[in-house]
Amino acid sequence: MFPNIEKFCRKFEFERDSISAERKNILKNIASTIDAEIEKNGKAKLIYICTHNSRRSHFGQIWANVVAEFHGMSSVIEAFSGGTEVTAFHPHSINALSTLGFKITPDSSKSNPRYEVKFGDELSTTCFSKVYDDTENPNKDFIAIMTCSHADENCPFIPGATARFSTPYEDPKLFDNTKLQDEKYLERALEIGREVFYMLSLTTSKKDNAHYS
């Protein structure tokens, strides 16, 4: 894992007090469901869902895969993302993640390219905007995690999901083209990373390993 990414994971470990009690309860419930899925199916599959699959849902997908690797759980936890509409992985999201230490490379210059998001020399996840039921996402036995209120309100039922949770985050898009733009994208990326870390640290399937203390 790249040193900067590992550094943020270690930092998240000591920031759990910044998460509200209400959010912690939701994250605890997701952790319990992850454990149940692993026990039942041998693996837990998460799909982070937001309207455009361009910002918050990608942050969720990326951090869940990073933290699973950090905790030694990458063989039993896999994260994806999707939306209710197809747009593109937003450049401001990419800039925020690059600032944090991810190495992000598109496969083309088309309007909705696939991006390899690397968090280690041999560690990566693929991001591009797609609907949540895209063929590259699981179509059954997955946990749906809603990251925006619009998708949450308009998708009360997610076909194929064994469980559905609402964890809306403020949209950094609200600050596009303002002096707070970069700050808010970083803030949201780190907030989601912090909550994902807390959530996965609660799973009983988490293995003790050299990365966790």
Rank of each mutant, 00 (worst) to 15 (best):
C155R: 14
M199P: 02
G120C: 01
D182I: 12
Y198A: 11
S32K: 15
K184I: 08
K45N: 14
P156L: 00
F142D: 06
P156Y: 01
F119S: 10
R10F: 11
H71C: 13
R16N: 14
N154E: 14
P172I: 10
F80P: 05
S81H: 07
P168C: 04
T135E: 12
E22A: 14
L123S: 12
P113T: 06
D141N: 09
F70A: 02
G72V: 11
I94Q: 05
H52R: 02
T147R: 02
V76P: 07
Q181R: 07
D35N: 06
R55D: 05
I5K: 01
F142I: 12
I158N: 12
T84G: 08
M73V: 09
N29L: 14
H150G: 10
E183I: 12
D17C: 11
D152C: 12
I5D: 07
K7N: 07
Q61H: 03
F165E: 07
E78W: 00
P156I: 10
A151M: 03
A151I: 10
T33E: 07
T203A: 09
L200C: 03
E122S: 13
T99E: 14
N65P: 02
D208T: 14
S75G: 14
N139P: 11
G101F: 02
G101K: 05
L97S: 09
A88T: 15
G60E: 07
F12T: 10
N4K: 12
K11Q: 09
R114C: 11
R16I: 14
K140S: 15
A96C: 00
R55P: 06
H211Y: 13
P156F: 02
S54V: 13
A44Y: 05
I62L: 02
D121F: 12
I34M: 02
T125G: 03
K184G: 04
I26E: 05
A36N: 13
H58Q: 10
I77H: 00
L123E: 12
Y115Q: 04
T126H: 00
T204R: 13
N53R: 08
S54Y: 07
S166Y: 03
I145D: 00
F80D: 10
F128P: 00
C155E: 15
K206Y: 08
S57L: 03
A88M: 13
T178V: 13
S81R: 01
K103I: 14
Y198I: 14
E187T: 13
K24P: 04
S111I: 15
N139Q: 15
T51G: 02
Q181V: 10
A163E: 11
S54H: 06
K140W: 09
K140E: 15
E85S: 14
S81P: 03
K206N: 11
P3W: 03
G42R: 06
K206M: 13
A36H: 11
Y212W: 14
D134E: 00
D133M: 08
C50R: 06
K184T: 08
L100G: 04
R56C: 05
D182E: 15
D152P: 03
D182T: 14
A151T: 11
I104F: 04
I47D: 07
K184W: 05
K184H: 03
L202E: 10
E39R: 05
K7A: 11
G83N: 07
E85W: 07
S74T: 11
S57T: 10
I5F: 00
S213V: 14
S75D: 15
R194C: 04
F14T: 15
F142R: 01
L27D: 08
S20G: 08
K130L: 07
G82M: 06
S32C: 13
F2K: 10
D17V: 13
T84P: 04
F8P: 05
A79Q: 01
